[in-house]
Computed example of a mutant assay.
Amino acid sequence: MAIQAEGVEHYPSFERIVDIWLSFVTPGAVHSAQAIAREFGTSRSSTYRYLQILRERGLIEDVDGAGNYRLGSAFVNLVRSCEDPSTSASIAEPFVHELALASGETVLFTTRIGDRVICTVALESRQAVRVSVDPVRNVPLHLGSSAKVHLAYLEEQERARVLPRLRAAKPGGKPFDPQALERSLAAIREQGYAISDGEIEAGVRSVSAPAFFPSGSLIGAITLAAPAFRLQDKVLKQAVLRVVAAARHISDAATATQSRRASAA
């Protein structure tokens, strides 16, 4: 589909941003920053600024880390209604269900929108005592294992921009130690997973691992969450192996999806 723009010489920025977003509201629409700049008559810097505004609000998302964009995960229901099988949520969903079935615990997949992490796929445990997904549907980037995975794999410059804003987001408004947080993020990158113990809800432990596009950019994080009494150290070790394996499968599926799309182009 060609992107249409009229009267670009006297085009107010707000209207331009809206029309750029509307160009994505078509089943399967994927546009590059270069194509948008060309069709809307915007400079490179303005184009990336507009796209960043849309991306921070979840209206679009990075497809492959190579400057291509589609509708964002904030509109998962809309994206699914377009029957696009290559969204991050669609790629992750079968592995969320597989891990939930194998573990018997609550499993979810999250993506980042601006300074928060949004749950896009979730399956709650069927056990009487279980972790509800509701408290972790929309959390700041420094609370919980899933959010910390997203924060850990931000580009260093982006992480430096985000951290000062997160300091006031801790419950009770108490400041936290940014150096300690950076050390924990470095550990997450080194070991390839994150563990949280009661950071969002008391008595809940969780394990999260990152999934990646072939380009190396983050697709999202898959998380297993359970009451702490069921996720003691021995069981926790097994949970880590399962979550890391599920994340790897999502990464592999993303690679296969991208290969199919490239072959069909």
Score class of each variant (00 low, 15 high):
P140W: 12
V121F: 15
R116D: 13
T111F: 07
D115Q: 11
S146P: 00
A122L: 06
T106Y: 02
S90Y: 00
R126F: 15
R137M: 12
V133R: 03
A128E: 06
A100C: 12
R112G: 15
Q127Y: 06
V121D: 04
I118T: 03
D115P: 02
G104C: 14
L101I: 05
V96W: 03
L108E: 13
L141G: 03
A147Q: 07
T110W: 10
A147K: 06
L141P: 01
V121T: 07
A122T: 04
E93M: 13
H97M: 06
E98I: 05
R126N: 07
F109M: 11
E124C: 07
V136M: 08
V107R: 08
P140G: 12
S132N: 06
T111D: 04
E105S: 12
E93P: 00
S146F: 09
A128K: 14
I91C: 04
A92V: 03
L141I: 07
T106M: 05
A102R: 09
F95L: 13
R116G: 08
P135M: 09
E124P: 02
L123W: 13
V96I: 08
V149D: 05
L99A: 14
E98G: 08
F109K: 04
H142Q: 15
S125N: 07
E124L: 05
T110Q: 09
T111W: 04
V96R: 12
N138C: 13
P140H: 13
T110C: 10
V149T: 04
R112D: 06
L101T: 10
A102E: 09
T120L: 13
S125C: 09
G114W: 01
V136P: 00
P94M: 11
L101W: 02
R112L: 06
S132V: 03
S125Y: 00
H97T: 08
T106K: 00
S145N: 06
T106P: 00
S90D: 04
L99G: 14
T106C: 08
T111P: 02
R116N: 12
P135K: 02
F95G: 01
L143R: 14
A92M: 05
D115L: 15
V107G: 07
S125W: 00
A102L: 10
E93R: 14
F95R: 12
V129M: 10
